[in-house]
Amino acid sequence: MRNTVIALAAVAALAACASRPEPTPTPTPTTTTPPVSQPSGPTAGSAEDFRVSVGDRVFFGYDRFDLTPEARSLLERQAAWLGRYPNVRVLVAGNADERGTREYNLSLGARRAAAAKDYLVSLGVAANRLETVSYGKERPLDARSNEEAWSVNRNAHTQIVSGAVS
């Protein structure tokens, strides 16, 4: 469907060009490259829109659960997006890196999820639209054991559960 819309828009643009008075005497249609459709991005209001256009993960320091300025800024964008799509419900999952024992990291992940949720609620997102879960160190984003991997594995991941545009 989206592709059809883009194609129609492209035809309209071509038509507009063609109708404009053009000094060039001999247009050669055979060499005209078809206009490349601009990447339109994900459908507004979709889960992909949220993930790509807004960002779905905020990151934390080692054994920390306080929100960095970058995390706050991203959660503010998440809150604004959730404000535009009030039917969307989300699950905020807290994650930890491997440097900590399993049970402690379940608690640490819960703290991170709660920190992200609490900030979203303070920004006006209704609390009953947000669930939280902790995966502790069980679901790393990056399988490696180094600083780079640990820094991305310490996160709160806002996942859309329902209500997004499909």
Binding site: F65, E103, L106, S107, K117, D118, T132, V133
Partner: peptide, 25 residues
């Protein structure tokens, strides 16, 4: 809330565990 880290009591009649509510374990 979330529950984890369970262990039985020595007489087997109970379980001690962690309950996490909104980030407080």
């Amino acid at each position: 809330g979330m529950t984890f880290s369970p262990r039985f009591s020595p007489n087997g009649q109970g379980v001690v565990l962690t309950l996490d509510m909104n980030g407080n374990s």
